[in-house]
Design a protein around this nucleic acid. Structure first.
Lengths: 190, 190
DNA sequence: TTAAACATACCGCATGGTCGGTATTTTTCA
DNA sequence: TGAAAAATACCGACCATGCGGTATGTTTAA
């Protein structure tokens, strides 16, 4: 098939640009206010061009979301590899990833997208499937009740952050992460 | 045709019906897909009639949301009154309320509304203010780090529920609530 | 009579999506 | 090799429609 070096025009490049622009715009204006036209403009493509790559707005969003999930997968995998302790390994990576996502100053598409994920049943399923998959994969190390609660707490922290619920009484991220991670270590029976 | 001898409608009644219908519809179709026309239809009123009571769609939603917050306030207050232990009293009520909201079979407006709350900056502020207010009010009993984590976890559980993220590996609500409540009791220094 | 509480009709407009056409590669095959 | 053929990538004008909102008329309670 494709044998020569890809030095000429980039056929797949436009699709990528579209995806990137959609993600970027989703951060700026929120997914609910995201318009196909704006994405096309940002990618220096007409609406017709966009619809050539994606059959519908829905599919475009799904594409962006897929990207995000893949990136999250990679990050979590990397974290888990560096973790020597088996018990709660995934949960720790989950917590750290979640906190890291909201810590990074540069607004990642996660904020806008994950909010919309909750609104859109389609995206919800993508997320649900992703999480279920990982949990099944790590059932041997991460199904302890305490670990579940820790994951829930991470979700809560993350939620509070992306929704800008800042109540000024909270402990800082550092402490929060430390405490949560601490909770994942197995308690020895006294 | 229209029966002439129907009881007169109280003026405030229509407003209430509008609010209720909006809440109900928000559950069914999601707030982002909620249309003013649908609300008016459901309340057996025309769009003009609706706009007589609410100057804009935004205000209508806000009205519904206000209702929810008031109801939550009442529930939490009631729970706190029945709680003899001071430490973590609010957090316990918060947890129980949150879990109860998603436990009730009848879908409450909380699901759809709180999802949209995250999307809409306006509603986010309402929530943020509400929470900050309560936390300040109970600063003496509910500012321990552990309690904060418990509240986060409650948020996470609630989030997982309203977003239908069902991963089949979770512990049941009963156990979850019990564990969380248990975490709110003050640990004696060993 | 008067003001509130509705109904009716209509508007502006943004938006997702379509459709026919065209330029540019890639493939086919004599 | 190279020219025809076909597939691909994109343009740009257009459409259908639903939506929030308004302007104004009509009924009802007091």
């Amino acid at each position: 098939m494709a044998r020569a070096h890809e030095r000429k025009k980039q056929p797949e490049q436009v699709r990528r640009t579209l995806l990137d622009c959609a993600a970027k715009l989703a951060v700026e204006v929120g997914l609910s206010a995201l318009t196909i036209q704006a994405v096309a403009d940002a990618a220096h493509v007409t609406k017709g061009g966009l619809f050539h790559h994606f059959p519908s707005k829905e599919k475009l969003i799904e594409g962006v979301f897929d990207d995000l999930l893949r990136a999250l997968d990679e990050e979590i995998d990397a974290l888990m590899q560096r973790d020597a302790v088996a018990h709660g390994r995934f949960t720790r990576a989950y917590v750290v990833s979640a906190l890291r996502l909201i810590e990074s100053k540069a607004p990642s598409p996660w904020g806008a997208l994950s909010i919309s994920m909750m609104v859109d049943a389609n995206l919800r399923k993508l997320w649900s499937d992703w999480l279920r998959g990982r949990l099944q994969r790590h059932a041997d190390t991460d199904s302890e009740p305490t670990l579940e609660i820790v994951r829930y707490a991470a979700d809560g922290v993350w939620l509070a952050d992306i929704t800008d619920v800042d109540v000024a009484l909270r402990m800082d991220r550092e402490q929060l992460r430390e405490t949560l991670v601490q909770m994942t270590v197995k308690r020895d029976k006294p």
